[in-house]
Amino acid sequence: MAKVTLQHLRKVYPNGYVGVADASFEIADGELLVLVGPSGCGKSTLLRMIAGLETISDGELRIGERRVNDMPPKDRDIAMVFQSYALYPHMTVAENLGFGLKLRGMSKADVARQVGEAAAMLELEPLLERKPAALSGGQRQRVALGRALVRKAQVFLLDEPLSNLDAKLRMTMRVEIARLHRQLGTTMIYVTHDQVEAMTLGQRIVVMKDGKIQQIDTPMALYERPINLFVATFLGSPKMNILWGPVLERDGGLHLRIGEGVELRLRPQGEMLEKVRAYIGRELMIGLRPEDMHLAEAGPDTLPAKVEVVEPVGNEAFLNLGCGGCDLVLRLPPFHLPAPGETVHLSYAAERMHFFDRQSELRL
Rank of each mutant, 00 (worst) to 15 (best):
L332K: 06
R282P: 02
A305S: 10
G314M: 15
D58C: 13
M208N: 06
F82A: 11
A298D: 12
Q214F: 11
E311K: 09
F318Y: 14
R67S: 11
G324C: 02
K275T: 14
V175Y: 02
G137N: 11
E176L: 13
F25G: 00
A109N: 13
Q141V: 11
A112M: 08
L53R: 04
L6S: 03
F99H: 06
E263G: 01
A317L: 09
D77W: 07
Q359K: 15
A94E: 12
T5Q: 15
E342V: 04
H336E: 13
L254Q: 00
R352P: 00
V4N: 01
L222F: 03
D194I: 08
R363C: 04
R225T: 15
A153H: 07
P161F: 04
G314N: 12
Y17P: 01
C41L: 03
R265D: 13
K74H: 10
V313M: 13
V150C: 08
L256V: 04
V262K: 05
Q269F: 11
G37T: 03
L87E: 04
P73L: 05
H193N: 09
T92K: 12
V307I: 08
G236R: 01
A109T: 11
L321T: 07
L6G: 03
A94N: 14
E274A: 13
V111K: 04
V150M: 09
G30T: 07
L319E: 05
D327H: 14
F230P: 02
M171C: 10
A112E: 15
S107D: 14
Y279T: 02
M49E: 03
G19F: 04
V18C: 10
T92W: 09
T45H: 08
L157G: 05
S136F: 09
P300G: 12
C326L: 00
L288W: 01
F230H: 06
G202A: 06
T233S: 12
A21N: 08
F335A: 13
H193V: 08
F25A: 00
S24L: 11
V309C: 06
M285E: 11
D77F: 07
L158I: 10
R277T: 12
N228A: 05
P219G: 04
L145Q: 01
Q269G: 02
A133N: 14
F234R: 00
L332C: 04
E54W: 13
E311W: 08
D110Q: 12
P38R: 12
V18Y: 00
G105I: 08
R182I: 05
Q183H: 14
P73S: 12
H90I: 07
V276H: 00
R130Q: 14
L61R: 02
L243K: 03
L243Y: 02
V344W: 05
Y85F: 15
Q203Y: 07
G322Q: 13
M293Q: 06
S163L: 10
D58G: 12
G37K: 02
A232S: 10
R76G: 09
A178T: 02
L47M: 06
A120Q: 14
M188C: 10
M353A: 15
E316S: 15
R170E: 03
Q359D: 15
L273H: 14
P290T: 08
G245D: 04
Q7E: 10
D22H: 11
D159R: 02
A167W: 03
I216L: 09
L9C: 07
L9Q: 06
V175N: 12
P340Y: 03
K152E: 15
G100P: 05
L256I: 02
P290M: 11
N315P: 10
A278P: 03
L222D: 07
D217H: 08
E271N: 14
L243G: 01
E31S: 13
